[in-house]
Nucleic acid binder design. Structure first.
Length: 573
RNA sequence: CGGGUUGUGGCGCAGUUUGGUAGCGCACCUGCUUUGGGAGCAGGGGGUCCCGAGUUCAAAUCUCGGCAACCCGACCA
């Protein structure tokens, strides 16, 4: 490609509202443009990178036996109603009606569609199967943000495995786990797997792949010593036993003006936070529910969702809380409450002599014996882990790291195969539903994650494997000598399989260098009068800034193999 | 969905307080000079001031309503 004809609108000033580095850089370097919130146009440079990311994913999934499909993205409501997810998905799904007034949805994922196709599987002899496609998904996110990191329209590679039994599913899951690790390595993105909640997708074993980044949206608990790593929505930690003393009787006491855990700690006759009960009034799918955690603990709402199966969870308003319990937030408690369900955190089991709100403003109650005085309907792990708490495996103080979720694999079991009739005959002639797994990886998000982890103050530093062009030939003059030498190197590199771009723009050196660095080509081959006088070109590595002089005659022969090697390894050259 | 901020040529912004017919930098076009790190000089083109209604002799500016984008939170494979 000749740069003079390339549409790569680089900007000197970044758009003011881009905060995440990948967002700002992808816009500034001319890769993407926003159409509206959560929808981006891929410009030529952006689409090249996107395709390269997709091809690496495709390559590794093919490697484990994946077969590529292309499925529709406009789905009939019926298929989602059949799986129960028409309702379960809530507002995340774009819904519309066709001219016949029948409900339709834009696909947020494709379990239902692949399961429908898979109903034609009939025999164990056909298994295992790994099917995938790379297709646009639509999700009506409440708040798209950070450029390509969270959008409403994006390409995802999702694969689905079909196996005769649990052992087969385990193997398919392990194969994907391995394939994903190879993919991230080739993409030049540092990644690790964590235990995760499967959320609304349904399933059990669930591993998310994460890459540390401040621009991320997930908090991940990591043990610095052992390998324990889990999404904070799932993570646990050790809780030291508390000394409660001997059980005593309930006793109401006046606490004028006390409305917070901290205030009650300071109040004469109050209690330490760890000896208080925090009662949160939540509305779960419309039902007012009391959620109890220790005074110094935080509720994690995803854990609450996982424990209850609730889809819509929100804190009750102060009015709703008053209507339910007769007091305002700050004086609420679950003691003696029987008209609302109570769900309590496991850390409260066996606790006595606790203090909590008395459901009357300015009054609390002490001497609470949780088992005796509170009608707990369900015990569950609800508390959010805090940094520094002991690792559940080895007791070392754990860290919490902000991460971008770049992939997710999980086992579905027979949830969809039973619903959609994906049954096959076993060797014994018995008919059984197949074991399914589901494995997703967002293409655009990985493109953004690669930028998040590979940039500097000059711009993007692409790994060779996904750079829009692997090398740019920068001409310092546009006279015959330069053009001839440049064209020769250009065609030589292309013949050797290198993605090359020749900068034949009539622009100043500074502009050309700055653009090349902003866009982040791994190699810059500079042809100028100084080098040409000696029959040499200058080769600069974007990542290291190292420059070496190379004789023109040897350039293609030495550089092409080096680029090929870096391309396969996910390195920067 | 709650809180905050912002909408003015392609991009970044000033002008809005105190109404008077739109300006700066970058980018773009033409010419001359320059040419290894975002050139200089001269000339030039481009704007429904987010949309609608209202007030006024007069609205980018004031009033009301709406829309959109961004940030924080809630939410979110």
């Amino acid at each position: 490609m000749r740069w003079s004809q390339l549409f790569a609108p680089t900007l000197r000033d970044a758009p003011n509202d881009a905060v995440a580095p990948s967002h700002s850089l992808l816009i500034r370097a001319g890769f993407i443009r926003q159409l509206h919130a959560g929808h981006y146009s891929m410009l030529p440079l952006g689409w090249r990178v996107h395709e390269k990311v997709a091809n690496i994913v495709r390559d590794e999934i093919n490697e484990i036996g994946g077969q590529e499909f292309l499925l529709p993205t406009l789905h009939p409501a019926a298929i989602w109603q059949k799986s129960g997810r028409w309702d379960a998905m809530g507002e995340i799904m774009f819904r519309l009606k066709d001219r016949k007034n029948t409900d339709q949805a834009l696909g947020i994922t494709h379990e239902e569609i692949f399961a429908t196709v898979a109903a034609e599987l009939t025999s164990h002899k056909q298994l295992p199967q790994v099917w995938y496609h790379i297709q646009i998904k639509f999700r009506d996110e409440a708040r798209p943000k950070s450029g390509l990191l969270r959008v409403r329209e994006f390409h995802m590679k999702d694969s689905y495995s079909f196996d005769i039994d649990a052992a087969g599913l385990d193997a398919a899951f392990a194969a994907h786990d391995e394939a994903y690790r190879k993919i991230f390595q080739r993409l030049g993105i540092p990644a690790f797997g964590v235990e995760a909640s499967s959320g609304a997708m349904g399933g059990n074993a669930s591993v998310e792949f994460m890459t540390p980044s401040d621009a991320g949206e997930d908090d991940v608990v990591r043990c610095p010593k052992c390998n324990y790593a889990a999404n904070i929505e799932k993570a646990t930690s050790g809780v030291a036993a508390e000394e409660d003393g001997a059980p005593t009787d309930l006793e109401r006491f006046a606490t004028p003006g006390v409305r917070t855990i901290a205030a009650l700690e300071d109040f004469e006759g109050g209690a330490e936070a760890s000896r208080q009960l925090k009662t949160l009034v939540m509305v779960l799918d419309g039902t007012v529910t009391l959620v109890m955690v220790r005074g110094d603990h935080q509720l994690n709402t995803q854990k609450l969702a996982d424990a209850t199966g609730a889809i819509e969870i929100r804190p009750a308003s102060a009015d709703e809380a008053f209507a339910a319990l007769g007091a305002h937030p700050g004086s609420l408690g679950a003691v003696g409450v029987s008209e609302h369900p109570v769900i309590a955190d496991l850390a409260l089991q066996g606790r006595v002599n606790m203090t909590t709100g008395a459901n009357e403003d300015d009054w609390h109650v002490r001497g609470v014996n949780v088992q005796r005085d509170v009608a707990v309907g369900q015990w569950a792990d609800l508390r959010e882990v805090q940094a520094g708490e002991p690792c559940p495996v080895c007791d070392t103080a754990i860290n919490i790291v902000r991460c971008i979720e770049i992939g997710h694999i999980f086992k579905l079991g027979t949830k969809y195969s039973e619903t959609f009739g994906v049954n096959v005959a076993t060797t014994g002639g018995e008919t059984v539903p197949v074991q399914m797994g589901s494995y997703g990886i967002g293409i655009g998000r990985n493109m953004a994650a690669a930028v998040e982890t590979n940039h500097d103050d000059k711009g993007i530093v692409w790994p060779v494997s996904i750079a829009p062009y692997e090398a740019v030939i920068t001409l310092m003059r546009l006279d015959d000598e330069h053009l001839e030498a440049g064209n020769q190197i250009y065609s030589g590199l292309r013949a050797a399989g290198v993605d090359a771009l020749i900068d034949d723009r009539d622009a100043r050196a500074g502009v050309k260098f700055a653009d090349a660095e902003l866009i982040g080509f791994p190699y810059r081959i500079t042809l100028g009068p100084r080098g040409l006088a000696n029959g040499e070109a200058e080769v600069t590595n974007r990542a290291t800034g190292d420059t070496k002089m190379v004789p023109l005659a040897e350039l293609v022969a030495t550089l092409a193999p080096e680029i090929a090697e870096s391309r396969d390894a996910g390195r920067h050259g």
